[in-house]
Design a protein around this nucleic acid. Structure first.
Length: 429
RNA sequence: GGAGAGAUGGCUGAGUGGUCGAAAGCGGCUGACUGCUAAUCAGUUGUAGCACUAAUUGGUGCUACCCCGGGUUCGAAUCCCGGUCUCUCCGCCA
């Protein structure tokens, strides 16, 4: 969330910046008024409380008779404080609630726009594969080979679930192992195995709550929440902590399943395995100092691109526009892989396999993650970043569609073979 | 799941209604002494909010914070209620 001081002291700059994210000026003005009112109340209350405190100290030294009259007066003051406390509490809660859903200030580099057509391609990699036959969509390739079973996924759990079998399950597992190894061994990340179920504070910390509760699976009995991304447990590892400057940057990588209700995308991407309620992802998370976060984002994005390149798949990196990016990040790069048959009859499309974002201090302020710039100095909020490295189903789609052979088999990307017992092809037998 | 014990500042740990933001020790910082280190001695040492002050990274005051949330009281670390977490013992279990 934003710092209330920013709203107080830099109102005009803030208005200008947030207008790009669709926040009206009156929204900020009313927040300012609310803050002003709450502070006046709070100041008044503190004065009254000071009166009681000093009077109470005297009271201890008075005789029994002297106390009685004074007591009655003080009790009346106490009652007034209680009334004000309630009123002030309501206002302060309102401020907090509104700050928690207010978007972050976008980086000046973020392009304005309302749809993916306004995203800017900043890099491309790999080469497009040429087919001597009509490539089939992944659901056909997978079903024919007996490695993908969508019908039985639906039987077990309903729409947007699927089953991977035999070499399909092995391929996904190989991808996970390969990605983790790469980030750990070549990119210097520390692997984390976090809980897949977290408390509500974690989701408030990274921003999913309160605004996006709709997209989360929730166990009401224990108030447990299934993680929609490893970003949530991993970023929250250092919630309410003060880190040493020497520890930064911290680089974590975690493989987890992700659970999402996808209510908002009902009817979209229903074919195949592109969008499910449960999917696997390898996620990178970084915590760093404010001065370092630009570099950290470039590095993190490069780490995700390295996976695409190693697999030998065509990809591109886009700078996401104001209307399409996450509301709470400052800057977002999406990495997309080309899937030649993912739209069935209509042909191919770019699939988002990674989203790499920098959040500035926005999440750190929510989750209270700080660091001490030098010994004895005041703690400051860290900057947080995260990015997929990568999301499994879409990479599976890209592999199934790009590496399919005319005979219906799939060539296993060379870098994955060591993780699949040296296997070079997935065939029906 | 059952029974019991506990939660205090960076750490250990006292404190059972006012003089407690909190003893003592450790640690940290500053200074003195010493050729250096160590030792010793003296001083100092929590966080946040707000107001005032306009002071080249400050100063003064007030408020809040002794796990969290309520309550009693003129006054709560201390008493009462609810919750969370930790530890020990028993049970169960991959």
């Amino acid at each position: 969330m934003l710092d209330i001081h920013q709203i107080r002291d830099n109102t005009d700059d803030l208005k200008r910046a947030l207008r790009r994210m669709g926040v009206g000026e009156q929204e900020i003005d009313s927040l300012r008024t609310l803050d002003q009112e709450a502070r006046e109340l709070r100041t008044e209350m503190e004065k009254l409380r000071a009166e009681i405190n000093s009077a109470s100290k005297e009271l201890a030294r008075l005789t029994a008779e002297q106390r009685d009259t004074r007591r009655a007066e003080l009790r009346a003051v106490g009652d007034r404080i209680k009334e004000m406390e309630i009123l002030c509490g309501v206002k302060e809660q309102e401020i907090r609630d509104r700050l928690l859903v207010m978007p972050n200030i976008p980086d000046p580099r973020v392009p304005d726009g309302s749809s993916e057509n306004d995203n800017v391609v900043v890099r491309t990699g790999g080469i497009r594969r040429k087919f001597t036959f009509q490539p089939r969509p992944h659901w056909e390739v997978g079903e024919r080979l007996g490695i993908l079973d969508i019908d039985r996924g639906i039987k077990l759990s309903g729409s947007r679930f699927y089953v991977l079998k035999a070499a399909g399950a092995a391929l996904q597992r190989a991808l996970i192992s390969f990605m983790l190894s790469m980030h750990i061994d070549q990119h210097g990340y520390t692997e984390v195995y976090p809980p897949y179920v977290v408390k509500r504070e974690c989701l408030v910390g990274t921003g999913q709550l309160p605004k996006f509760a709709d997209n989360l699976y929730h166990d009401a009995e224990e108030d447990f929440w299934l993680v929609p991304t490893a970003e949530v447990p991993v970023t929250n590892l250092h919630r309410d902590e003060i880190l040493e400057a020497a520890q930064l940057p911290i680089k974590y990588v975690a493989y987890t399943p992700c659970f999402r209700r996808e209510k908002m995308s009902a009817g979209r991407d229903v074919r195949g395995i592109k969008r499910g309620h449960q999917f696997d992802k390898v996620e990178m998370v970084r915590l760093c100092s404010a001065a370092d976060s630009n570099n950290q984002l470039e590095e993190l994005t490069a780490n995700a691109e390295a996976v695409c390149a190693a697999l030998g798949l065509e990809y591109r990196t886009v700078l996401v526009c104001t209307g399409e990016k996450g509301e709470f990040n400052t800057l977002q790069y999406d990495i997309e892989m080309w899937a030649p048959a993912s739209k069935g009859e209509e042909g191919g499309e770019w699939l988002e396999v990674s989203s790499c974002s920098s959040f500035g201090a926005y999440q750190a302020r929510r989750a209270n993650i700080r660091y001490r710039p030098s010994a004895g100095a005041r703690p400051e909020f860290v900057h947080t970043l995260n990015g997929s490295g990568l999301a499994l189903p879409r990479v599976m789609i890209a592999i199934l569609e790009n590496f399919q052979q005319e005979d219906g088999s799939i060539e296993v990307p060379a870098v994955l073979r060591p993780f699949m017992g040296g296997r070079t092809h997935i065939t029906t037998s």
